[in-house]
Design a binder for these strands. Structure first.
Lengths: 179, 179
DNA sequence: TGAATCATGTAAGGCGTTACATGATTAT
DNA sequence: ATAATCATGTAACGCCTTACATGATTCA
């Protein structure tokens, strides 16, 4: 269901697009919260079309198909977004890794956490670059769509970086005090 | 692979345990980063045993089996943790929902975000209760294992709550200025 | 004694990844 | 001409969820 909603949402926010466009949109925008490859997106769009959630517009060059959200699709998305179910589906391999850090020896754990912190900093820089005017030329991104999401991504990276750094500090401190 | 590592990690940190124990441990500890039901855990433990990563100890009452990590299991976990692959597998339905908020009308979006912020606050309170001495009686949790993870969980909840609140504020402000 | 909890399993079907496969168009 | 990019699809296999299924032990 989530993939379906993600596609409806992307089409709603960014306007009609092809499967190819949506594949790239996934990568460039929503990637830190959800992933999908073209091999999953293309069949899903076909099913959604069969279910009346999207329509296929003009068949462009190279067999390009442009999809647009129908009224029913819009209604379904709205319902899904407003449905207050907690829906705790969350799979985050990095957090899992972080969680298992105490299974390592203290010095190994510290090294790993420091490296992770560096990684988050690098990705933070990538994301920050996306927010700068220079990168915004590709359109849309600035207004509404992407604004809040980008902000969320930035906060997430900062949070993870800080946690990794603080935890490394704490492990170092406690393993120095009783070695 | 992740489930396998999660199980090895939990067994390493908390000591020998049954599939039943691990199922509950999953729920009470790692839940915000990874989920697994008993129907996935039991077969996986059997496979891991066949692969020599864990051993089955004494068969207790009610057919209870107690698993322990083997040397090979420990080695595999260590390798996996230290392997620096970025591994960006992340599926977070809540972030996805948050991301799609701009697909709603401003007033609907604000209402949704406020409700989400309340939800995060509630879960934050739950997590904070876990960190208090009273709840710690069930053992282990306090030292090492759970400490860092709990901290990460708390930071995550706070981050999400703040984002939801700030974004609601921002949408409210911008829809008031040009309605 | 009956309900709750402990304890383990299997099966069907859906979701997601990797790999395979093909061809058109554009830029160098 | 050649490489890069655009563009869509299918198939096999693995991971995960939901539902079905069973029985032992403990507590009130």
């Amino acid at each position: 269901m989530s993939l379906r909603m993600a596609l409806l949402g992307l089409l709603t926010i960014s306007g009609p697009a092809s499967g190819y466009d949506l594949t790239k949109l996934f990568e460039s925008s929503i990637n830190h919260a959800w992933q999908a490859r073209h091999s999953q997106i293309y069949p899903e769009l076909n099913k959604m079309s069969a279910d009346g959630l999207v329509t296929v517009g003009e068949q462009g060059a190279r067999g390009r198909k442009t999809y647009a959200v129908t009224e029913e699709g819009a209604r379904l998305l709205r319902e899904w977004l407003l449905a207050g179910e907690p829906s705790r589906l969350a799979r985050h391999e990095e957090s899992l890794r972080a969680f298992l850090v105490p299974a390592l020896e203290p010095d190994e754990a510290v090294a790993l956490l420091r490296e992770q912190a560096r990684g988050y900093d690098a990705r933070l820089a990538e994301l920050e670059a996306l927010g700068e005017p220079k990168t915004l030329e590709r359109g849309r991104r600035a207004e509404g769509f992407g604004r809040y999401a980008l902000d969320l991504g930035l906060r997430h990276m900062r949070m993870m970086r800080d946690w990794a750094r603080d935890t490394a500090d704490e492990i170092e401190r406690s393993s120095r005090s009783r070695p």
